[in-house]
């Protein structure tokens, strides 16, 4: 309908794609072992070259980069869904305690199984994280029925998050020492240690959930107007709400299962994307969120990896630095308009 708007959408998507490509190259290039671009090109395209370098690229850097892309996208889409569901711009898997719920259940399962020398599959991890996500989600839904104020909803979510984190810390502290270091790193959030197996599973789960989300663009756009209007437009509200909860939980559970809880991406990216596109139409926002989340997480992971190399920062510390100001900005601006 509007040429100016279309041009804006095209430019935005192109910019996101370019950023993603640039960060991809930069990420492959940087690390404790420095490799020349020519070497990397050789390794990637001809699968040859020095064996150590080959392994670094193929077994360490690439899976990690792909994980950051997939999980970053998943987090943002999950955040967008939760914001739509609660009609609250600062809802997200982390602030609502959903990530922490996943973290708790995954930690419990891992400690239990590690104690019995059983390794857990990727699918098992996702299942455990999903159970945790649903438990937290259940509490949040319970509270959201009693309180309608958006700040109170977030506060109850943050409290649920704290309780889950406290129990997780407790469990991790008193667990047997083997593998604890791993568990500890994971519980702070990190994209490190991804395998191709992990990447395959997360690609399947996130890909499917994101595709379903995209196909639900139409009812989501109606729901954005408010429940009563969506209902009048013929949306089956009950079914839709269940679908929204399941999708957002699966997406955020998948992230937590592999990378631990990652803060603020779910709030900051959808907001930035909407400001960039100047629209909230799900048909555009959902794919843009996925791209934006991938860019955001790649960028943050790059910093986490290289800033104080060889020491790695937890990914959440970096996402918080860039994400929290966005959240504060949203809240300040909200106060003015409402």
């Amino acid at each position: 309908m509007n040429k100016k708007a279309y041009r804006r959408y095209a430019v935005s998507f192109a910019a996101l794609a370019l950023l993603l490509a640039a960060l991809l190259v930069w990420n492959i290039n940087s690390g404790s072992v420095s490799l020349s671009v020519r070497e990397i090109f050789h390794i990637l395209v001809f699968r040859g070259g020095d064996e150590t370098a080959y392994n670094i690229i193929w077994q360490i850097r690439l899976p990690r980069i792909l994980a950051a892309i997939i999980l970053g996208g998943a987090l943002s889409v999950s955040g967008f869904l939760l914001q739509t569901f609660f009609g609250n711009p600062i809802a997200g898997p982390f602030v609502l305690g959903i990530s922490s719920g996943s973290k708790l259940v995954v930690a419990l399962v891992m400690v239990y199984l590690l104690g019995r020398s059983v390794t857990i599959s990727s699918a098992g991890m996702i299942a455990a994280a999903f159970v945790g996500a649903m438990i937290s989600m259940g509490f949040v839904l319970l509270f959201s029925r009693k309180i309608s104020r958006m700040s109170m909803l977030v506060i109850s979510g943050v409290m649920i998050g704290y309780i889950c984190s406290a129990i997780t810390d407790f469990v991790v502290t008193f667990a047997d020492d083997s593998n604890i270091v791993n568990l500890h790193n994971w519980s702070l959030g990190s994209f490190s240690g991804m395998t191709w197996g992990n990447v395959t599973v997360m690609a399947a789960v996130v890909g499917l959930a994101s595709a379903v989300t995209f196909l639900m663009s139409k009812p989501i756009s109606a729901y954005q107007l408010g429940e009563v209007y969506a209902q009048n437009l013929g949306v089956n509200i009950r079914l839709f709400r269940v679908a929204l909860i399941l999708l957002s939980s699966v997406l955020s559970a998948c992230v937590t299962a592999f990378a631990g809880p990652i803060s603020f991406v779910g709030i900051a990216v959808p907001h930035l994307v909407k400001s960039m596109l100047k629209t909230a139409k799900p048909l555009l926002v959902i794919p843009a969120c996925f791209l934006g989340g991938a860019v955001f997480c790649l960028f943050c992971d790059l910093i986490a990896r290289t800033m104080f190399a060889p020491t790695e920062l937890s990914i959440s510390s970096v996402t918080a630095v860039f994400g929290a100001p966005v959240v504060i900005y949203i809240m300040v601006r909200r106060r003015k308009t409402v």
Partner: peptide, 13 residues
């Protein structure tokens, strides 16, 4: 069709 008293949420519309 309806015209309701409920405020319509209309982000960036």
């Amino acid at each position: 069709a309806v015209v309701l008293t409920e405020r319509m949420r209309s982000e960036l519309m």
